[in-house]
Design a protein around this nucleic acid. Structure first.
Length: 799
DNA sequence: GGAGTTTGGTTTTTT
DNA sequence: ACCAAACTCC
């Protein structure tokens, strides 16, 4: 498949000789894709809808740059967000141009590329080029120390929150010296100072966090024109994948680099922007044409993935968002299956039904060809929803795999092992020292560690040196002191080995783990997960083989280490909607479409309309993952944090057009036959707090609520709900209120508030109520934000 | 220092 | 309900 007749002949020379070979990669592009590939000069925005062959166009564009001799492989800057995306792009380019892809050092994630740049120019921002990269865990531990040092109550102001605030600033490329006034009250008004202290501390430690990778490079570019100019010249063509996910810092970084030649091609889909909560700015993609005047905007709208019904449904949902760049996906595929919609009594029943449905699909149902298990996915809004599916699939013996979950390198044993390696490589890595000095237990408690810290600070040395001094001077004595001495000596020995490269790094790593007693610690551990941890350690050591040295490994691992091996095989995939972006499956289940869960209440509370729109994009992403069939479902009752909660079907269900939806008759007796209106209706007409007006609004525009089916359901639900087994959805119906109930309260009523929980009314003033909350204490709350709760002064709210 | 108990906090996740 | 972190007591 290589285009390259002679791998030794430089591509550029090939091109210059007029020997541009026939380009098969251009042949299988549609006109839009081809336009995007051939518009090589100047700014290009490739708006690529779901399933429109975005990666194909992007990789073909790179191949085209290479084969036409516009750029040598090392003159192309191609940025992605994830290592996975970078890897995929690399293999696909390789398939088009052969070995030339090996010469592309600047194809990678924003962070990986920034590490490369920063190692070259570290001294310009006061770092040494062997700086360490802190992950979130290190970051929080460091911040915790600073919070403690500042004498702040850790309970009320957790370090994790500070980390979040600082990340937010870094996403917006704000250093401690230019925090806007609106933000100075953050973290009890001490956020800015702590941020500054944190940056100072990082510099002392010769360390950076993920955000710094971008910010330091931006700082270098801004302060050193010559350096910037050099890279502007070097990177002749810039390509950016998933542009809708860029944050402000990434945007500034790109803009600096693209300023000269403006050969920047950004690929993305504003409708798939789902990472606003971690700093992504949809604005970047919406503003592209202003940022780069004269930009060519190319829309990829032909979808190769889904049937017209699925596209129709997804398109109608996303159409409810405002301020879109606008795209209409179309397909030449045949009609296919409508989106299926089904309501269930509760979450367990939903899981049960989906389990059965998957088994049926596997065999082939309703005239559909059988679908293998790995062609089926269950996509949930929040990871806690996965549990009921895992439970269910486990009981019926349906093989499944959970995608996402904790990453390999985030596991405790891996992080411990890495800390040993880090300390062996850099003896002044204090964070690593702290992590492992008493792991395994060496009889060194808080007291001893504190002493070491004091000694180290007094002598202005690293903690490891401090520890040596502390043992020599008997400041840390006794059993702990002896063990500490052994630890320090062993660490020095290992460090020598690293420097002298006496053994191979793989043997050395194994030796460190064994001699430190770390392996033994897990061997002696009787807990059920110990065996797995030992396995992981083995895997870690094995992973080392692919690197030249421990240093090399550590350098890459922080940025590049992915999830443990994906075992193949016939399995259903369970994952979050976020994790599903970019994937596709013949059959997709979309459970939990209930207001409050999806769209998530929290997103709406915190993000308002913007939040809701991002949730809607998530719905769009979910639907467009499906190739042949999408099954949307909701449950009337669900146990959340141990309490039963009723909810309405998601408002996104209302947005699914009738003509693309088939309402399935729910299983069993419950709700049977209410599909008459041809649209979804609630499994339960109960409302979440504060939604009464919302319902009215919806009723006004959606005729389904006037339908016989809806009315019947309302009538049905006047009876205390029970399913066919006579179960009730638990004792407490907390968040719920009858849609028609008059929300007037009496002193002593028990009520529920979305944020503060349960409480009792102790006073009132106008529409404001004084409520003594059980958890949150006494507060004044506007009446419309609370709903009656069971156990009040009067009888339960009528159901 | 370590086992056992209480408390708090629970969306989404990459690097 | 459930998990992890913090706290208590030996």
């Amino acid at each position: 498949m290589s285009l390259h007749p002679d791998p030794d002949l430089p591509l550029s020379r090939l091109a210059m000789a007029g020997a541009v070979p026939r380009a098969p990669y251009l042949d299988d592009l549609n006109p839009a894709q081809r336009a995007a590939v051939e518009a090589l000069d100047g700014p290009v925005l490739m708006l690529a809808g779901a399933g429109t062959g975005k990666t194909k166009a992007l990789t073909a564009r790179i191949a085209h740059l290479l084969t036409t001799g516009r750029a040598r492989p090392n003159e192309i800057l191609a940025v992605t967000f994830t290592n996975k995306a970078a890897r995929e792009m690399r293999t696909r380019i390789g398939r088009m141009v052969g070995e030339a892809v090996e010469g592309m050092p600047w194809l990678g994630t924003f962070h990986a590329i920034c590490v490369k740049l920063l190692r070259r120019h570290a001294e310009l921002v006061g770092l040494r080029s062997n700086f360490t990269i802190l992950d979130t865990d290190d970051q929080v531990r460091l911040l915790k120390q600073l919070v403690q040092a500042a004498g702040i109550d850790e309970k009320r102001w957790p370090a994790r929150q500070l980390a979040h605030v600082i990340d937010g600033w870094k996403n917006r490329a704000l250093g401690p010296d230019r925090i806007p006034v609106g933000d100075v009250s953050a973290f009890d008004g001490k956020g800015v100072d702590l941020y500054a202290a944190y940056q100072a501390r990082l510099r002392d430690l010769n360390a950076v966090d993920f955000g710094d990778l971008l910010l330091h490079v931006i700082a270098i570019f801004k302060a050193h024109e010559d350096v910037l100019a050099q890279y502007q010249r070097w990177f002749r063509y810039i390509l950016v994948d998933e542009y809708q996910d860029t944050n402000i810092a990434q945007y500034l970084w790109l803009r600096l680099l693209a300023q000269g030649h403006r050969n920047i091609c950004c690929v993305g889909d504003d409708d798939q922007s789902i990472y606003g909560w971690r700093g992504a700015e949809v604005g970047n993609i919406l503003r592209f044409e202003q940022d780069f005047p004269g930009a060519a905007v190319i829309r990829l709208e032909q979808n190769y993935r889904s049937t017209p019904h699925i596209l129709g449904a997804a398109g109608a949902v996303i159409a409810a968002n405002k301020g879109r760049l606008g795209k209409t996906l179309w397909t030449s595929l045949n009609e296919g299956e409508k989106v299926r919609l089904i309501g269930h009594w509760d979450g367990e029943e939903e899981a049960r039904w989906i389990g059965e449905e998957i088994e049926a699909m596997q065999r082939g149902t309703r005239g559909m060809d059988p679908i293998p298990l790995d062609g089926i996915a269950v996509l949930v809004r929040a990871s806690h929803q996965m549990r009921s599916f895992e439970d269910r699939f486990l009981t019926i013996g349906l093989p499944y795999r959970v995608i996402g979950g904790p990453r390999f390198y985030e596991r405790q044993e891996i992080r411990d092992a890495m800390a040993y390696f880090r300390l062996a490589v850099s003896p002044d890595d204090d964070l690593a020292f702290e992590r492992i000095v008493n792991t395994p237990k060496r009889g060194l408690g808080d007291k001893a560690v504190q002493t070491i810290q004091v000694v180290a600070r007094q002598n202005r040395v690293s903690l490891l040196d401090g520890a040596r001094i502390a043992t020599d001077s008997r400041l840390v004595a006794g059993k702990g002191g002896n063990e500490l001495r052994v630890f320090v000596q062993a660490m020095e020995r290992w460090h020598d080995q690293v420097v002298r490269e006496g053994d191979t790094h793989v043997e050395l790593a194994q030796m460190i783990l064994d001699e430190s007693g770390y392996t033994a610690m897990w061997q002696n551990d009787k807990s059920p997960e110990a065996a797995g941890r030992l396995e992981n350690l083995k895997e870690l050591v094995k992973a080392l083989e692919q690197f030249d040295s421990l240093q090399g490994f550590l350098e890459h691992v922080a940025l590049v280490m992915d999830n443990a091996s994906e075992d193949g095989g016939e399995k259903v995939s369970i994952m979050t909607l976020h994790a599903a972006k970019g994937l596709e499956f013949p059959a997709v289940f979309l459970p939990g479409w209930e207001d409050g869960l999806f769209p998530s209440q929290r997103s709406m509370d915190e993000g308002g309309l913007k939040g809701l729109e991002e949730e809607r994009r998530l719905a769009y992403v979910g639907l467009t993952r499906a190739e042949r069939v999408a099954i949307v479902s909701f449950a009337g009752n669900r146990r959340v944090h141990g309490q039963w909660q009723s909810s309405l079907p998601s408002r996104f269900i209302d947005e699914l057009p009738k003509e693309h939806v088939e309402v399935l008759t729910p299983p069993g007796l419950y709700g049977g036959g209410y599909g008459a209106a041809g649209m979804a209706v609630g499994a339960s007409p109960v409302l979440q707090a504060g939604m009464a007006s919302d319902l009215a609004e919806r009723a006004a525009r959606a005729d389904v609520y006037a339908s016989p089916g809806w009315r019947r359901l309302q009538a049905r639900a006047q009876v205390r709900p029970q399913d066919r087994f006579g179960r009730e959805p638990g004792e407490s119906r907390g968040l719920t209120i009858d849609a028609t109930a008059d929300s007037s309260f009496t002193l002593g009523d028990r009520v529920f508030h979305q944020k503060f929980g349960y409480g009792r009314i102790v006073g009132a003033e106008g529409d404001k109520l004084d409520i003594a909350f059980e958890k949150a204490g006494e507060k004044k709350v506007v009446a419309k934000f609370v709903v009656p709760a069971p156990g009040g002064g009067e009888d339960d709210v009528p159901f």
